[in-house]
């Protein structure tokens, strides 16, 4: 290795260029995926709107895709979806936040190593298993004995909401815990030094400081609840209806898409095309929620 053999000028090898291009293309797969999703949903939905008026679709409250007379009021599915998501949040927000506070401010390291895995296990359970749990346990052994056979059936928005709530609790807990732990120790100590109790520190210092992460986690959880398929498919039944009664059987947007796919529906038929219009509605709703959650994080991010 003499100096002469090692010139300072050197053309960048072609392989380096090729590698960079390949890496870039891999990163661009995400954009292609997004464009693909939007393109498929929009084109197929436009096809559907040739037959069904978009106004009827977005304002109607009756949905009947297979049984005549057909009705295409997506609000029936939207209401089912929102009902299930709302029940889920009613369960998951307190459970998730209490668990987050417990992990961030109360639990000793040893207790954490026991409690964290419980949450992670729940988060890792395939959602179909939670659907099974709803049908085989929540409904027959919890809800029916509690509310009476006359008041609630084997399939209900409530049963679906409960298992979806269970499913999104770890999400709220882990994101909220992260943002609570990010609150500097000094802020806590300042409050303790003024004679605050632990609960007061949590409520008046930690919670407000971590609020952006907490809000973001709740919105993300809402988006997740709206998009969940397998758990609700088994639990809530298949009865699209515009209702806010949690004991009723409903159908969510995801469950409708799943049901159409499960059935023998011909791919060119109008029922099948409605799947894309429902998909676009679902995609739009979750996209808005995800954007809001990102915005909340950026807007209210506290710099410590």
């Amino acid at each position: 290795m003499t100096t002469a053999a090692r010139p300072l000028t050197r053309h960048r090898p072609l392989s380096e260029r090729i590698i960079e291009v390949l890496l870039f293309l891999s990163a661009a797969v995400g954009v292609v995926t997004t464009l693909g999703i939007v393109a498929v949903l929009v084109f197929e939905t436009l096809d559907f709107f040739v037959v069904v008026s978009p106004i009827d679709f977005f304002t109607g409250t009756f949905w009947s895709a297979s049984i005549l007379p057909r009705a295409w009021g997506v609000l029936a599915l939207v209401s089912g979806t929102v009902l299930v998501a709302a029940i889920a949040l009613v369960i998951a927000v307190p459970l998730g936040l209490l668990a987050a506070v417990f992990l961030a401010d109360y639990a000793s390291p040893r207790v954490r190593t026991v409690v964290k895995p419980i949450l992670e296990t729940i988060a890792g359970i395939p959602t179909i298993v939670l659907g099974f749990f709803a049908v085989n346990f929540i409904s027959p052994q919890l809800l029916i004995p509690l509310l009476g056979r006359n008041n609630i059936g084997g399939f209900s928005a409530l049963a679906g909401g409960i298992v979806v709530g269970l499913l999104i609790t770890p999400l709220i807990a882990s994101i909220s815990e992260d943002s609570m732990r990010a609150v500097p120790r000094g802020m806590r100590e300042g409050a303790y030094a003024m004679g605050a109790t632990r609960f007061e520190v949590v409520r008046k210092v930690v919670f407000p400081a971590a609020i952006s992460g907490i809000m973001a986690s709740i919105i993300l959880a809402m988006s997740r609840a709206i998009g969940e398929t397998m758990a609700v498919l088994l639990a809530v039944g298949a009865k699209p209806q515009f209702t806010i009664d949690p004991t009723e059987s409903v159908q969510t947007m995801t469950a409708f898409i799943a049901a159409i796919s499960l059935g023998e529906t011909a791919q060119g038929s109008i029922e099948f095309k409605s799947l894309f219009a429902v998909g676009l509605t679902l995609f739009g709703m979750t996209l808005v929620l995800n954007l809001i959650s990102g915005w909340v994080v950026r807007k209210y991010r506290t710099a410590y």
Partner: peptide, 10 residues
């Protein structure tokens, strides 16, 4: 954050 079933449509 896109619902999984949407990936099925794609």
């Amino acid at each position: 954050g896109v619902p999984s079933i949407i990936y099925g449509i794609l």
